[in-house]
């Protein structure tokens, strides 16, 4: 079964101004879709609509051919969304943060798996430090560790490269491509220049 997110005649208005109108989208497995546009063109809003958070839009969303309203549960079980804020609790250690996120999706998970995921994002040795003491880039990496930890088909990433150093950016880019090539699908906004690749598609807003 391959995944497929479709939008038909999507439109959203902000302060009496149409951010986008009549937007038709087909997002399939094996793709990285990059949403482009100047500041304020509605990239984040579009991602929030496509990840099922905002509901006051016009038009229709379909998940694997089913209207989003009916397929919502199945959709959420296959979605991983990372927003502007990393969603990392300052008072908890990276390990505890990840444990909660795993439990939210209904899995108990295991400590070694979480440690491995943290090591994969370059946070080995920081597992038990309160996240509040980590730098902004490191906190972002804790959130990114969820990409490795919880296998989900659809990734929706809002500016995932923020505060990440150059090596981290290269590794994350490789991870996105690998995810697409293994049948997953990535929806991403970024001001960072992504290297051209056959799986990359662009959508221009504004």
């Amino acid at each position: 079964m391959s995944l497929c997110l479709q939008a038909r005649q999507l439109a959203c208005e902000r302060d009496d101004r149409w951010l986008f109108e009549g937007l038709d989208l087909d997002i399939q497995s094996g793709e990285i879709v990059r949403i482009e546009g100047p500041n304020g063109s509605g990239k984040t809003t579009l991602l929030k609509i496509l990840s099922g958070q905002l509901t006051d839009y016009r038009g229709e969303l379909y998940w694997n051919g089913e209207p989003m309203r009916q397929a919502r549960e199945h959709f959420l079980a296959n979605l991983l969304y990372l927003g502007h804020a990393p969603g990392v609790k300052a008072g908890l250690s990276p390990l505890e943060n990840l444990a909660w996120y795993q439990a939210l999706s209904g899995e108990k998970g295991s400590e070694p798996a979480r440690e491995a995921a943290l090591a994969a994002v370059g946070l080995a040795g920081f597992e038990d430090v309160p996240a509040g003491q980590l730098s902004a880039g490191q906190q972002r990496r804790v959130a990114l560790a969820r990409l490795t930890l919880t296998p989900r088909a659809l990734w929706v990433l809002d500016e995932p490269f923020t505060a990440i150093d150059r090596q981290g950016v290269a590794a994350l880019e490789a991870q996105l491509v690998a995810h697409a090539q293994s049948g997953g699908c990535v929806l991403v906004t970024t001001h960072h220049a992504l290297t051209e690749s056959p799986v990359l598609r662009r959508i221009q807003l504004g």
């Binding site: 959203c12 208005e13 902000r14 302060d15 009496d16 951010l19 809003t45 839009y57």
Partner: peptide, 16 residues
């Protein structure tokens, strides 16, 4: 909400 996206929700648009 004067700064956020809402399609015609009642409040915040009364001036119209």
């Amino acid at each position: 909400d004067s700064g956020s996206c809402r399609v015609g929700a009642g409040h915040g648009r009364r001036h119209q």
